[in-house]
């Protein structure tokens, strides 16, 4: 089977972002960029299926500016076979991302598409579900385990209150959660090897897709921060203050 994995270049999740002074956008100057951590888990899973000879090829796709090539190289260094950059400098929403991935999927004919469950920048948690709908495929969100069995894949999903296991007819779209696997670090030889792996480049127009913004950003604000309160000296003082001062204990 062939696997396609979608990866997004995002701000390092450990960085606290700030607004530009005029509030018109996020100040990304000098910030470390990285692959969305959930997408790393998706790449890792695809590469493992390749190593188990369940998958014959792993294609990684990213949508974004030239710099997104770095993210594709990271995925190639982890073990993906080839990359596809759909190049756009425009801000892009999940609905358009899904349309572009759908177009790529129609051309590439993967049996399985893996994505991270959400990107840690816009926190939308939409792309995989939208892509599955547009392709008319089954979807398995928040996967913590998956097993390919013939023409189907069994997915265990992290749901509120526990877990749910579903069987999806292939081809299918799966979005992955934290506990699916522990992504590997690329070794130096593999990083060198990845430099020679092919990355194709396309434009949205090549697929006949115009990237449009359905949402107008009216305003961006940093939320009013919480102020640090007081330090208490003992557990007894804490309970007393919670009761008399904060009124949250009866």
């Amino acid at each position: 089977m062939r696997i396609m994995v979608a990866v997004k270049r995002v701000v390092d999740p450990n960085v606290k972002v700030r607004l530009l002074a005029d509030g018109s956008g996020i100040d990304l100057t000098g910030l470390k960029m990285t692959m969305n951590p959930f997408d790393e888990i998706a790449v890792e899973e695809a590469v493992r299926l390749r190593e188990l000879a369940i998958a014959s090829e792993v294609l990684v796709v990213s949508i974004g500016p030239d710099k997104a090539t770095e993210t594709l190289r990271t995925a190639l260094a982890m073990g993906a076979d080839r990359g596809l950059l759909i190049k756009t400098d425009a801000p892009i929403e999940p609905l358009s991302v899904a349309k572009l991935l759908r177009a790529a999927a129609i051309e590439e004919k993967p049996d399985l598409i893996l994505l991270g469950k959400q990107a840690i920048d816009d926190d939308c948690n939409q792309t995989g579900q939208m892509l599955a709908a547009q392709l008319g495929w089954a979807q398995g969100t928040f996967a913590s385990n998956l097993a390919v069995e013939g023409d189907a894949v069994t997915v265990t999903r992290e749901v509120d209150g526990g877990s749910q296991t579903v069987r999806l007819v292939l081809p299918a779209v799966i979005t992955v959660d934290l506990r699916l696997n522990e992504p590997r670090y690329a070794s130096l030889p593999n990083i060198m090897k990845a430099k020679k792996k092919p990355i194709a480049e396309r434009q949205p127009a090549d697929y006949g897709i115009v990237v449009e913004q359905r949402l107008e950003i009216v305003r961006l604000e940093e939320p009013a921060g919480r102020l640090a309160g007081i330090k208490v000296g003992s557990a007894t003082e804490l309970v007393e203050r919670l009761r008399s001062e904060a009124g949250v204990l009866s």
Binding site: E93, P94, L95, A98, D123, C124, N125, Q126, T127, G128, Q129, M130, L131, A132, A133, Q134, Q139, T141, F142, R157, E158, V159, D160, R214, L215
Partner: peptide, 23 residues
């Protein structure tokens, strides 16, 4: 925005060609 809402609504949005607003 429960795990079921998060799973089904983007699928609905795509079927209606609407950009969902999450959370």
């Amino acid at each position: 925005a429960t795990t079921s809402g998060k799973s089904v609504m983007p699928r609905v949005a795509a079927l209606l060609d609407v950009m969902q607003i999450s959370d």
